[in-house]
Design a protein around this nucleic acid. Sequence first.
DNA 1: TACTCGCACTAGAGCGCGCTAGTAGAGCGC
DNA 2: GCGCTCTACTAGCGCGCTCTAGTGCGAGTA
Lengths: 333, 333
Amino acid sequence: MADVAEKAGVSRALVSIIFRDLPGAGRETRERVLRVADEIGYRPDNAARLLARGRSRTLGVMFTVHQSFHMDLIAGIYPEAERLGYDVLLSAAAQGRSEEKAVEALLGHRCEAVILLGPDADPAYLDELGRRTVTVSVSRRVPQARVDFVHSAEGKGARQAMDHLVELGHRRIVHIDGGRGPGSAERRRAYRAAMRRHGLEAEQRVIPGAHTEDSGIETGRLLLAERDQGLPLPTAVLAGNDRCAMGLLMTLTRAGVDVPRDLSVVGYDDSHLSHLMPIGLTTVRQDAVLMAENAVRFAVDRLQNPELEPREAVLDPKLVVRGSSGPAPQEPA
Amino acid sequence: MADVAEKAGVSRALVSIIFRDLPGAGRETRERVLRVADEIGYRPDNAARLLARGRSRTLGVMFTVHQSFHMDLIAGIYPEAERLGYDVLLSAAAQGRSEEKAVEALLGHRCEAVILLGPDADPAYLDELGRRTVTVSVSRRVPQARVDFVHSAEGKGARQAMDHLVELGHRRIVHIDGGRGPGSAERRRAYRAAMRRHGLEAEQRVIPGAHTEDSGIETGRLLLAERDQGLPLPTAVLAGNDRCAMGLLMTLTRAGVDVPRDLSVVGYDDSHLSHLMPIGLTTVRQDAVLMAENAVRFAVDRLQNPELEPREAVLDPKLVVRGSSGPAPQEPA
DNA sequence: TACTCGCACTAGAGCGCGCTAGTAGAGCGC
DNA sequence: GCGCTCTACTAGCGCGCTCTAGTGCGAGTA
């Protein structure tokens, strides 16, 4: 920077002004300085900048490797952060790299706020984090912690899916739940409520599962085994998420079950997996972009006004009807 | 830091020494300082650290959203970088955020080197980048650029897959290529070479595709349409990658084609999709961890010795045989 | 003319560390 | 007693930038 200043015949301060796009520099000088900087290959040093500024204007984002929904969120976070003048730092949790470690890395880089995508860390830790730093949790509610919370109305989404199935005439609807995956408690609750509301209380059945393909495969095998023992297949399945739905779908299809003629499947998330099937997977879409924008805005708002209490944003999910759901098969009288 | 020093009754310098784990501090003092720091909630400021040190010891990693293989690489990069004493910064390219933008973000944070996962940017830009900064490209060869290059022996992997299929008695083997996806040119070449080598030149058929599910679905429809016109199905398909293989698999399975009885499918990448099928997808595994380690080491080596010329690492891929490949069906005489 | 005002620009402190050069004191041999 | 080394610690500069408090100057105003 000193080089640029010298070569352009101005003070360092003016170079600084020009690079921050502030008023207070003549048009001509501005151009000259920028030209010189370009020649030299000068690029402002973020570290020094951040140090001098006293604040980093940086948002840290923790995500988990292999979570395709997190990628959608990240894609949404970047533009919104940029719009509000914030930089984004990513840190991944993975096998062998705990969420806490990922978060600590972010804090070490002096992120002013952290956005946690589907965190699964100890609530006590998250609360402590929330008191120390502005923290936003996406998808996962952390009851006792001082953090903002952005999620979609899981219950509403599950309800829409259930209403869709019931309207198609389904009665024997099974739910594969998502274990302790984000949102799965709400989805399970909504499934139960919907069954009751439609007078199908007796047909209720929740099969424990997880948000993984394997869980769907396992459930598929279970259902097929039951069928071979003479029990009827359900006519529809509400899966915990798309991955689970896909595993189920693969297993059933391979066994000759025609989806959606014999059985309908509804997923959750509208991940890119939904397009894997030629007929498409009926699923519930969470608007990742909107969630991302909300998360960023929550963080920035609280940064600008530290008095603010943590807030909660509930976004409406939307049922996306594709080929994996259809009219209930005729029951043999 | 000054607070910690004062409260512990030592100089700032000593605190610095302790936090860098250097010799030159008494056991007792060390413990006291660390305890005080913990009480205050002190955490060394990366920006200041980096500024004072003159170098950041930070590796920048650019990846593309929704590329599941990139996630595997990232998971491998973290531990190796940590082992060598480097920090890792992630920056994602996505819809609306070009690779160049992602890279510039990394450079702004004074990364000493950048590791590009499957870059697709302009070679001229990459060359310029390579001259300015230590740069490693993973998976994508950039012929004219001054960058290190880590990849797996695409040809070898494809050859293994082909040998596997031929051994199983397949002759009518089709290849769906990956368009301009990383490695697809080599895979295509290896397919052609293998067909020739096995005397199947007349059976050669490359169907243009892409590294997407849709590409597999489309090809599946094409093959089914041909069958309906009386043309024989191929007995085996070498897909451009796993996503393509899965799309194909779904399409064929739904149409009643039994995999692997009627037709074998081999993918490429061993992404988590491979487990989606109950029978598993036969595929070629690229060792992500090894690739990641090589990439990090290339970067660090060149950082330590700037004289070093860019190098290339070719890692052996490995055929993983699962349920989607089996003996060729008996041809009707 | 004397003054204020706004614009273009500058001087210099300070952000939180790392690092070099140094000091104080203990232990040791002679 | 002396010099020597070794360990435990400190003083203070400087990294590259931002930011506050200015300076100098020409135009506008009374």
